[in-house]
Write a protein that binds this DNA or RNA. Structure first.
Lengths: 353, 353
DNA sequence: TGTTAGCACTCACCACGTTAGAGTGCTAAT
DNA sequence: ATTAGCACTCTAACGTGGTGAGTGCTAACA
């Protein structure tokens, strides 16, 4: 059952007005503000039909209409037009991302900051998932006679390390041997792959002619190796502008505000949810989010070296400027991906922390 | 002007009652609940005096009395008695901190979690300040012909690293030379010391007979070295139970809740403030905190290896159970320090991330 | 002189009724 | 098919009076 041209116009007008003013919009104000050439009565009739079709709701009899999730969905899919960023915003983005170009996590965080500053919503950024990162080498470095550092280095320059303190002293020789042995075993394999296979494989069974000291050391090092790998897989989550929502009327009640804040108390849960989302700009509205029934979530992906994929996102009430936010996020992720494309012959420093 | 024994008793009763019920307490209820052997009228007279001296306030004429910051200060300094933790809480703490004993940052975070769970307030934990950490060695590791890893290792096993990508290829030989050279220069010095001296010293001027390639490499590496040192100085801040305060009546208004949340939006500012606080259990009440006028802040310090010092803390309204919270924090920090005392011949893994 | 009973007074809070205004939905005219 | 007109509905705002908790003062008492 398709909507008539006029119904679309009215729906669009209602959405525009409601997004702007956060108050149920009545037939009269539509007729006055948007020049549709029909009277309030006609608009009332159309509104009634739109409500029947599920695009509008009614807080109570004598109130105006409010767009439903379905209406926003229609708007995002069909009605919305791309917006050009203001010159001011563009300048802001270029300056701010440029300035910190050489520090990875910082840049990601700045992107999230920009997002929340410009949209006045809550935003977040995830560092890239490293499931497909391949291991370049593994190194064991001596600190003192019973302390050593285990270091795993990925092809993209990712580094993770752990400090181990052993019961018994080790020798430099066994350390070097184990370093080489592990590197040979794991070089070129992805983190995911190594972790999965390790749950099955019998640790150490793959090495022949291994002397007792080496076997003992390996036995101690392997659990840490696995933990460190898991650590390397963890992505960082940066949240920005959490308090922005306090200025929005939909969170003027304490209960709503608390519910919102509690979403982010479980960082791990939230991170997992976000990682599961598809690539590109993804919009999920209200009920489409299992929890977070009355939020809209918009995520977008950026690329590092054209390979690893990270995410940035915005969370707010379903009433938001979809056109502006999605356009901004597109611009921002393009800009990020550009920054993280390694150009030939360039000095580049990447912070691992 | 000292308070009489009876005035102290009344003050104590008011504080106890108000902390429990969060409502202005009247003369009648004091007389009934706490057996002071005097009539409400007498209590009223004493209350009037206490108010004149600034220990009590009056929301409006026909309401009961509320303790002022000054009253809480008196209570904390003189009246409060140490509380024994419940067996349940002790068990909880021992289990939870034991379980994660081998992962440093995790343990710290768990401590903060426990703190907010037991007190139902907002809590935080800071990893130890590393200003006095001494450098053990510096290592430059090759990844590919133009990529290398700069790694700084402290005596306590702290590790920080950075991935560098250079314009021009380097040779293994120069890398090793520079590694050794830097280690010789900085080994045994504290991070603070190295950073300070570097602002004055002319980078590279201390090396004689240095060939051109080495000088060039050093020129590229040094800025990253400094940044990495600064990075190593950064402490991590973990916040827990931020949404707990939504359940407290003092934050039932959106404005109060927002103000509270915004304190933690500036993590850096907050971290700095906390680092400046004295060691041991420190309580600051209401106006004593420049910002955060209507909060009480309690911090305590734990030790790592008996040397480095980290902090945990609790934030809430001035109305809180000072005796229980301070006792809990004392127990918790003792427990932490114990966990982080390196016992001889023990297997120990410390995560650096 | 310190303590207490008694009492008038204050003030927040709640329940209630009233009013004003915005907006709908229906009907009849165009 | 569109529109003017009008009755109807419901919320939000305002005012009113009653209630109860609590104070502060005064005068009596030990």
């Amino acid at each position: 059952m398709d909507l008539s041209e006029r119904q679309l116009q009215i729906l669009q007008a209602i959405i525009t007005d409601y997004v702007e003013n956060a108050e149920p919009v009545g037939s009269r104000s539509i007729a006055k503000k948007y020049d549709l050439g029909v009277s309030p009565a006609t608009i009332r009739n159309e509104m009634s039909d739109l409500e029947e079709m599920g695009y509008l709701t009614h807080p109570h009899t004598s109130a105006g209409r409010v767009p439903s999730d379905k209406a926003y969905r229609l708007y995002v899919n069909n009605l919305m037009k791309k917006k050009n960023l203001s010159a001011k915003d563009k300048r802001l983005i270029n300056e701010r991302l440029q300035a910190s170009r050489d520090e990875f996590d910082q840049t990601i965080r700045h992107a999230a900051e920009l997002l929340s500053e410009i949209t006045h919503l809550t935003s977040f950024a995830l560092t890239p998932a490293t499931n497909d990162e391949t291991i370049a080498f593994i190194r064991l470095l001596p600190v003192d006679e019973r302390t050593l550092i285990l270091m795993i280095v990925g092809e993209s320059g990712n580094v993770t390390n752990t400090t181990l303190r052993l019961k018994v002293p080790y020798t430099q020789e066994t350390l070097d041997l184990l370093s080489k042995n592990m590197t040979v075993n794991y070089k070129g394999r992805t983190l995911d792959d190594v972790l999965k296979s390790h749950i099955i494989e019998d640790v150490g069974s793959d090495i022949e002619a291994m002397n007792a000291a080496l076997t003992a050391l390996k036995g101690t090092v392997m659990p840490s190796f696995i933990r460190t790998l898991e650590d390397m897989l963890n992505v960082n989550l940066y949240m920005e502008g959490m308090t922005n929502i306090f200025n929005l009327p939909e969170y003027s009640s304490i209960d709503r505000a608390r519910d919102f804040m509690q979403l982010f108390a479980q960082k791990d849960w939230f991170t997992q949810k976000m990682l599961q989302r598809a690539d590109g700009v993804v919009v999920t509205i209200g009920e489409e989010n299992a929890k977070m029934k009355d939020c809209t979530l918009i995520t977008a992906t950026y690329h590092v070296d054209g390979k690893l994929v990270g995410k940035i996102g915005v969370i707010g009430p379903t009433r938001m400027k979809y056109d502006e936010v999605t356009s901004l996020m597109e611009y921002l992720t393009n800009n990020l991906s550009e920054s993280f494309r390694l150009t030939e012959g360039e000095d580049y420093t990447e912070r691992n922390d």
